[in-house]
Computed example of a mutant assay.
Amino acid sequence: MSGDPPRPEGTMRDMIERHQVWAYLIAVIVGIIVGWKTSPGTMAPEYLVWALLGSLLYATFTQTPLTRLSEVFRDRRFMATLLTGNFLVMPAIIGLMLLTLPDNDALRMGVLLVLLMPCTDWFVTFTHLGKGDSTRAIAATPVLLIAQVALLPLYLWLFIGEQSAVDLNLWRHLLPAFMGLIMVPLVLSLLTQKWAECSAGASRFINVMGLMPVPLLTAVLFLISMTQVSQISATGRIVWILMILFPAYLLAAARVGQGLSRLFRLPLETGRTVIFSLGTRNSFVVLPLALSLPEVWNAAVIVIVLQSLVELFGMMFYLKWVPSKLLPIRSTI
């Protein structure tokens, strides 16, 4: 799309994004070690975590072309496939996956929060690296973001039930976090993008902000791992369950994307874009929501952090599997 900042191979941003998996893994491991050796509650004040999360979401949203919503609707087949997969087929599969989990509300909440929200950031990066259509991926991100924000309350009500949510005061905790840590950065990023349409300085600022999501998320993962290490050790059995569930989700997402791409007769590159969209989730956008919940829901935070790590390594597999096996050049759609 015209007007987008150039993203040539070898730039600082590409280098950061290529090494992000290892940065996140190291941050989690070091955070766990520091948390075990020290008293993390006194080392990481709560306001620091929230400030980093707010900055992270703002930096991420500035890279989402919110002012270009109309462009993505020009390809109706692509949008129909993307919305059908992300908001109809995959939620149904997630609902079936919940049936395999133990009776643990916090575990289910974490799984729902993270798997119901399509990714709007590194989805573009992995689409580009996996020989998908990054232009359509960029154009689709604001639609995905707005749709998931609108549909998340409905999904939680359907899967958890109104009575459970009321009993645990769920909405009283989710609503302030949603408004303060998602809607405020979203509105600010939209205003920034509007400003950039008539200011070269604002455009340069947005380009600089494009370098920030990976370092900020690395810092967030370090702090979360450090402060939640007791929860990690206390939920050891949950970890092993999720190590089966999340890879299973990635495999299902890839096959669903492949099937929908053929059903809607999408071009190869566009079909790969759909697969990467279904496979990637908005883990750190929902992390603030999980952190805002009362202590009874603490395991949801561990679920979201673990999912992000499983997904990142899963994307390494996707980069080879999707263009070479699922939708190779020789196949016909």
Rank of each mutant, 00 (worst) to 15 (best):
P294K: 01
P102F: 08
P142L: 08
M316S: 09
S261W: 09
V166Q: 14
R265P: 10
C198W: 12
R76H: 06
Y318D: 07
V208F: 10
I26V: 13
F222V: 04
G257A: 13
M109G: 03
N282M: 06
K37H: 08
V166I: 15
P5W: 12
L309D: 06
L309P: 03
L145G: 03
I146K: 03
F246M: 08
W50Y: 09
L69G: 12
L112F: 04
W36A: 14
T120I: 15
R281A: 00
P294V: 05
F246S: 04
R136N: 01
V296S: 14
L170M: 13
A147R: 00
Q20N: 10
L96P: 11
D103I: 09
Y24G: 01
A177H: 03
R13S: 14
D103R: 13
L190E: 09
R7V: 12
W36R: 12
L223N: 04
G257W: 06
T64Y: 04
A202G: 15
D75A: 10
S277M: 01
V184N: 10
Q231H: 12
G271D: 05
R13E: 14
M1G: 15
P213E: 02
V274Q: 06
M12Y: 11
T218C: 13
L53C: 06
G201K: 15
V305A: 05
I93F: 08
S203W: 10
L115A: 09
L88C: 13
M183L: 14
L168E: 14
T127Y: 02
A51G: 12
V149F: 12
G85F: 07
T332A: 10
A248K: 09
L319R: 02
L268C: 01
A248T: 11
D121T: 11
R136I: 04
L52P: 10
A23V: 11
M226N: 00
D14I: 03
I32W: 04
L57N: 09
N104W: 00
A252R: 08
L312T: 04
F276T: 00
L175V: 07
F87I: 05
K325H: 09
V187M: 14
A92S: 13
D75E: 13
L52Q: 12
S277A: 13
L268F: 08
A106T: 07
T100N: 10
S331E: 04
L151C: 10
F73W: 06
I333K: 10
L98Y: 09
L107K: 02
L287D: 01
V220Y: 00
P323M: 00
I26N: 02
I32M: 14
V184D: 11
A177M: 10
S283M: 07
A147Y: 06
L174K: 02
C119H: 02
I302M: 08
F78W: 04
Q63A: 14
I32A: 04
V303H: 00
P288V: 11
T100M: 05
T218S: 06
H128R: 13
S55M: 07
S277Q: 02
L57Y: 06
R281V: 02
P176K: 08
G180P: 02
V239W: 07
P65T: 11
D4E: 15
R136Q: 07
L309K: 00
E162T: 15
A177G: 07
A59T: 10
